[in-house]
């Protein structure tokens, strides 16, 4: 564990708390992509299967349970409790275009051709693109509630912090994780447009609005 990794994890944790806070206080999941949230459930479940057969640390264990639990809870809130506030007609990104290629990539790029390793690779690739339905939705509506943009910013910053963490680990431990690094850089890259608007508008107190 190092400073960058910890900041990344805390940012990830914060993003989920902001998301749940947004749903609870506005009593609505307006502006959120159900598809993106469903992809995160798939990401966490396929990645954290090792919970059942491998002990890393209490920190690791608690965080994994939290990510699985909170993503399932979010899905439940969106699907049932605040269902009427979700508008499927603007959440139209085809997730087959994400899941299929990620599955193929995982079959090609993995550290061992075993079920758990292929699923782990799949989760890494899928996480890198899971935000696309949400960003696509944002692009369509052209605006977002401020709280939703805070959620997206925290979620984007999380993987960005993992990049210096990987560099640090390379120099201190001499290890690399090429699959996570390539996917993590791609994942962070997808947020660049969003970050630009977030830091130049929302952080200056303006509303998040995309140019027409």
């Amino acid at each position: 564990m190092n400073f960058f990794r910890l900041l990344g994890d805390l940012s990830h944790l914060a993003s989920i708390l902001i998301l749940l806070h947004k749903i609870k206080t506005t009593r609505s999941c307006r502006g959120l992509s159900f598809k993106t949230q469903a992809l995160y459930v798939a990401v966490f479940i396929t990645r954290y299967l090792d919970l059942t057969y491998r002990w890393v640390s209490l920190y690791n264990f608690v965080m994994k349970l939290f990510f699985i639990g909170s993503s399932c809870a979010t899905l439940y809130l969106m699907r049932y409790k605040y269902c009427p506030t979700h508008d499927p007609s603007i959440d139209t990104f085809k997730i087959e275009y994400l899941v299929g290629p990620c599955a193929i990539l995982a079959l090609i790029f993995n550290y061992k051709f075993s079920v758990s390793e292929v699923l782990w690779s799949f989760s890494i690739f899928l996480e890198s693109v899971a935000i696309l339905p949400q960003l696509f939705m944002l692009q369509r509506t052209g605006e977002a509630e401020t709280i939703t943009t805070h959620y997206l910013a925290a979620l984007g910053i999380y993987r960005a912090f993992y990049i210096p963490n990987w560099i640090y680990r390379y120099f201190t431990e001499g290890v690399v994780d090429p699959i996570a690094i390539v996917a993590g850089i791609a994942q962070t890259g997808l947020y660049l447009d969003f970050f630009y608007v977030y830091f130049t508008k929302v952080m200056q107190g303006e509303k998040f609005e995309l140019p027409a």
Binding site: R5, D9, S57, M63, W120, V176
Partner: peptide
């Protein structure tokens, strides 16, 4: 380069 074998990241 040695690849991380025991995955400890989230």
């Amino acid at each position: 380069l040695p690849v991380v074998t025991e995955k400890d990241e989230l």
